[in-house]
């Protein structure tokens, strides 16, 4: 564990807590894409399949349970909780996210580190996470400006993988044989997809306006 990875995990945890705070306290999911949340639930379900078979640390298992529990409960809230579901913008959240799942699965079957069931699904979760934010970014463009909590959620979600990139650089130089091109490229693509969001997000900070 290094400070970049810890900062990344804490940023990721913060993004989840901000979203849960918004949905649970003000019972609103306005501006939040249910489709991105569904993709993230699939990402965690396929990435943490080894949660019961390979124990890394208490921290690792605890965080996996937090991410699994929060992603599925956010999907549940947005789909079935009456008050929250009413604030869901169904007409605008129309990105065909299932069209993202199949190509990621095919790519994972073609490009992976080991051809085993767990490894292919784990690789699939990396590819899917890289594009999982697309429905949210499309919804963002359609709803024009969003409330601060949603903006902070997206900012933190985009930042966590950027911190992981610093972690990979650190580990590459400090650990021999630490080379994982698939993880690195997927993480880089994922972070680059946030580029224009980060640009407008920082403009907001400078200008002090809402996120346009």
């Amino acid at each position: 564990m290094n400070i970049f990875r810890l900062a990344g995990d804490m940023t990721h945890l913060a993004s989840v807590l901000v979203l849960l705070l918004k949905i649970h306290t003000i019972k609103s999911c306005a501006g939040v894409s249910l489709r991105t949340q569904e993709l993230y639930a699939i990402v965690f379900a396929t990435r943490y399949l080894d949660i019961f078979t390979s124990f890394v640390s208490v921290y690792n298992t605890f965080m996996k349970l937090v991410f699994l529990g929060s992603s599925f409960s956010i999907v549940w809230y947005m789909r079935y909780h009456k008050a929250v579901h009413r604030t869901y913008d169904r007409e605008q959240d129309t990105f065909r996210h299932w069209f993202l799942v199949l190509p990621c699965l095919v790519l994972a079957l073609l490009i992976h580190e080991k051809f085993t069931f767990l490894e292919v699904l784990w690789t699939f979760s990396l590819y899917l996470e890289a594009v999982a934010i697309l429905p949210q970014l499309v919804l963002l463009q359609r709803t024009r400006n969003i409330d601060n909590l949603t903006g902070q959620y997206i900012f933190l979600l985009g930042g966590y993988r950027g911190l992981y990139i610093l972690n990979w650089i650190y580990r590459y130089f400090t650990e021999p044989h630490f080379v994982h091109w698939i993880t690195w490229i997927a993480g880089l693509v994922q972070t680059l997809l946030y580029a224009d969001f980060f640009y407008y997000y920082f403009l907001r900070f400078i200008g002090g306006r809402g996120v346009e």
């Binding site: 080894d50 390979s54 690792n60 991410f67 080991k114 972690n167 044989h177």
Partner: peptide
């Protein structure tokens, strides 16, 4: 092997 050091991340 990859199990050693890339599965210890979230």
């Amino acid at each position: 092997s990859s199990l050693s050091n890339s599965k210890d991340e979230l």
